[in-house]
Design a protein around this nucleic acid. Structure first.
Lengths: 345, 345
DNA sequence: CTGTTAGCGCCTTCAG
DNA sequence: CTGAAGGCGCTAACAG
């Protein structure tokens, strides 16, 4: 046990040739008798076919590269979960690289992967630059981008613009007129621009009295929390966090200042993170199905690999989740008992 | 561009032999002049060394397998982050498999990985069985386990028992006598048994009047939330969740019932998740540095791979994080304004 | 310092 | 149906 046993050893033990063993391993064409002899020899020796030798011949690695902006985030976890759900049964395995939110590192990772002999690459991008597009076009290994979208390359993502509109329309319907949008850097086109744009459009459209202020923050609780004072100074009736985490940070700030949500001010988020339902007030948000996105993206890459027709319909479902953090200004306010957690998920 | 160019093409174009090119790629020994010629030839052809051919020769894949119980969890994300931090600079890349909390699948993943030709395997286990140990011993590829511990195999984890003691000692000092421990299945030795055992010991030691009730729940918010009624019936002064998520679920339940924390009942958790600081009351907890754990585990595996002396000291730091969710029963209670988030992280 | 010579382990014609 | 022979692309002695 332990020492590497090759196809040759098996062949000798079974009293056949290497090719026969190889045939046994792949497409048949062996007499039943030798089949049995080979099988036994394999069992006895504990033979494992050498991954690299095989790949060297077949020119297929069954390995896909996955490059992610970061690891310690719920959304990335879900995404990965979905990706795996498709790749695993298809016999592909993912090798993982992390870009630490750096576009440079992201590009570097992609190039590394290409040399590693993966069959394809999936990248959850934080910003799709011209270099990304160039790389995608100048290489034979197919790349699918997610998180950002560009028509020039295979890419798939949630409809941030539509999500923004959903929130805008909802708040408008609830009678809000002055919102602060706590957003992120425009480098991130999807979250920083589209989400915000969609919101503003739906919120303000043909409503001159409506008004949106903008405050830029980071993606984490703390940086959102730190903008609390600035937000409050603008005295909106509602603050819209570009992600649930941002909203959670704001919620904490408001809590500390003794400001009641949604009685005194409303808060909405984007993402639909699980924690949004356990905090109180439970966070109203538009939920994205990141796991599904992961599955779609993986499937896209698989289709590309098989030179298969790529499914046209790339729309991902969006769910508006109405919970407890937005006040209806068109109705007289009555303090409600908190809803049951069961209804909030 | 695109057609595969091999070392041979480069050699011809540069007017040298294949070996010279190979040398250029690896350890030196080339005249400056040919060095230049080769470099230019490589650039012109866009040559990429073939991963598999190289691995076939060197018998080293520079690939490590990482087996995880699930993907969509903060702790796993942090762990992975730490693992990557060590592997990446060392030139190793991780290939990822998910076990979906199933021990069977975990075993299967490990065996698959072995055949894939990885150099080593890291597994974040949910339960270390005899089969795991057997596998680890009967294979030439080194395996490091984390999450669970067993002296028979390389394994490293946080000291759950000590963490339990920390909480027990703290609550005792705060004057609590009757706790409900909301824990998980004993299949998970680390969380289900050790954490609980440590707590009970420190909480009850030489204190006959102290009393701990046990309620079993799952790892998610919802299943903890669902045990809320059962917990309340026991009328403890404090409920100890075996993980922060469990505590968060309980917190939500209490909130819905209008029960104030910590005024009427206290809550503690384990884990030190970031969200614990933004909810209110902010959750008192013992924090684990999962990222550091990941680094340690990865380093352990690297040491094994290099046949290097393995570092003896495997203790991981534990941080008790006192926040707002536990009441000091030995003092007269006074309602405090919520602390600043800045002090809670 | 450099080219020649052997393989690494497997798959795949090609005769038989 | 089966064995022999050749080669995937690269590295590592070995003589020069």
């Amino acid at each position: 046990m332990g020492a590497k046993v090759t196809i040759k050893d098996v062949a000798e033990l079974a009293g056949v040739s290497k090719s026969t063993v190889s045939r046994y391993l792949n497409h048949g064409y062996i007499s039943l008798e030798k089949q049995k002899r080979v099988r036994e020899a394999i069992e006895k020796t504990g033979f494992k076919s050498n991954f690299f030798a095989k790949r060297l011949k077949t020119q297929e690695s069954k390995l896909v590269g996955i490059v992610l902006p970061r690891m310690d985030s719920v959304t990335v976890g879900k995404l990965l979960s979905g990706i795996n759900r498709i790749f695993d049964p298809a016999g592909y395995q993912g090798i993982l690289l992390v870009s630490h939110l750096s576009i440079e590192k992201e590009l570097e990772n992609i190039q590394n992967l290409q040399q590693q002999g993966v069959d394809g690459i999936l990248v959850d991008s934080v910003g799709l630059t011209d270099r990304h597009i160039e790389i995608a076009k100048s290489t034979p290994v197919p790349i699918v981008y997610t998180g950002q979208w560009n028509e020039a390359v295979p890419s798939i993502k949630i409809d941030d613009w539509a999500a923004g509109r959903m929130v805008g329309a909802y708040l408008r319907q609830m009678g809000h007129r002055h919102a602060v949008f706590a957003g992120v850097t425009p480098t991130d086109k999807a979250v920083g621009i589209e989400r915000k744009q969609g919101f503003i459009e739906a919120f303000c459209e043909e409503r001159p009295e409506a008004h949106v202020d903008f405050i830029e923050t980071g993606f984490d609780f703390l940086s959102a929390y730190n903008k609390g004072a600035a937000i409050l100074e603008l005295a909106p009736t509602v603050v819209v966090g570009a992600t649930d985490n941002i909203s959670l940070g704001v919620l904490r700030y408001l809590h500390e200042r003794g400001i009641r949500v949604p009685e005194q001010i409303s808060v909405v988020g984007f993402g639909g993170y699980d924690v949004g339902a356990v905090v109180y007030p439970a966070l109203t948000t538009v939920a994205f199905d990141y796991e599904f996105l992961g599955m779609k993206a993986a499937q896209y890459l698989l289709d590309l690999l098989a030179h298969r027709e790529v499914e046209e319909n790339m729309t991902l479902p969006l769910f508006f989740v109405e919970r407890e953090s937005v006040r209806n200004l068109t109705a007289k306010y009555e303090t409600k008992a908190p809803a049951s957690y069961l209804e909030l998920t």
